[in-house]
């Protein structure tokens, strides 16, 4: 078991993975309950366009992914508020538009000579020390912000109108939520990749929701599921030589199915 930690890349993978495991359900619970799950998917595709831009400009793709996701999240929320188009249509435009942009940029530079696969499905072995620092710093920022605005996020999630009447700055809270979602999604790329992020954000929360308990306990249970899935997923993938991102997501799904069966 300990041989796992002889490898620097495994330690970096665990560090980054656990941080992501902590922040994903924190943001996930608000996204799931507000029916915003598709936002996570959309922002992950936007992040891929960000990755392509980073590769093209030869800067750290994680940084460009974060910038692309955050800027797009603000644009999506503004489109949603303006009511010029349906919220879901806004998401579709961003989802396919950014995927198209990513593909064009990648083909434009003949594939960059990098493994696109690692950005699509995550690859903890390629997590650099700088990435761990970025994920750590911004992950801490996301967690601290959610804790600071927990009561406002909760009120807006449960009853946006009453929250507004009671003087909660709902517009600010909505934009905050989507920006935090953008940060979480883009930070998760090295671990679970663009295509699997939404699962990590959504599935632990949906599993915890089956247990029908208080809001705060639901978050704590989702945290336990998420952290367990990430740690065991990385360990299993190491020994069986599997894709860590895929293994993590399959672990969360196994837990979800297990809870469903136990609840029957």
């Amino acid at each position: 078991m300990l041989e796992l930690f002889k490898y620097g890349f495994m330690i970096r993978g665990f560090e980054a993975g656990i941080i992501i495991a902590i922040i994903a359900p924190l943001i996930g619970i608000f996204l799931v309950l507000r029916r915003y799950s598709l936002i996570a998917d959309t922002l992950s595709h936007v992040s891929l366009a960000g990755v392509a831009i980073g590769l093209l400009l030869k800067v750290n793709p994680l940084i460009t992914a974060i910038i692309a996701a955050v800027l797009s999240s603000i644009a999506i929320e503004r489109l949603r508020i303006s009511k010029k188009i349906f919220g879901e249509s806004a998401l579709s435009i961003f989802l396919s538009g950014s995927l198209a942009l990513a593909v064009v940029l990648i083909s434009f530079s003949r594939g960059f000579g990098v493994d696109l696969f690692s950005y699509l499905f995550g690859s903890i072995t390629t997590v650099k020390q700088t990435d761990v620092y970025i994920i750590g710093t911004l992950g801490l920022l996301v967690a601290a912000t959610i804790i600071t605005f927990y009561k406002e996020l909760l009120y807006v999630t449960v009853d946006e109108e009453a929250a507004k009447v009671n003087g909660i700055p709902t517009k600010f809270i909505n934009i905050l939520l989507i920006v935090l979602a953008a940060l979480t999604v883009s930070l998760s790329i090295p671990i679970v990749g663009v295509l699997l992020i939404a699962a990590l954000i959504v599935i632990p929360v949906v599993s915890a929701l089956q247990l029908k308990t208080s809001f705060i306990k639901t978050i704590l249970i989702a945290e336990v599921i998420s952290i367990f899935a990430v740690i065991s997923g990385i360990i299993i993938s190491f020994y069986l030589n599997l894709s860590p991102g895929g293994t993590i997501v399959l672990t969360t799904i196994s837990i979800f199915v297990l809870i469903l069966m136990l609840k029957r």
């Binding site: 309950l33 909760l154 449960v158 915890a208 929701l209 029908k212 208080s214 809001f215 705060i216 306990k217």
Partner: peptide, 8 residues
């Protein structure tokens, strides 16, 4: 929604 009466 997963909230208790007290939370609400």
């Amino acid at each position: 929604l997963p909230i208790t009466v007290k939370e609400l």
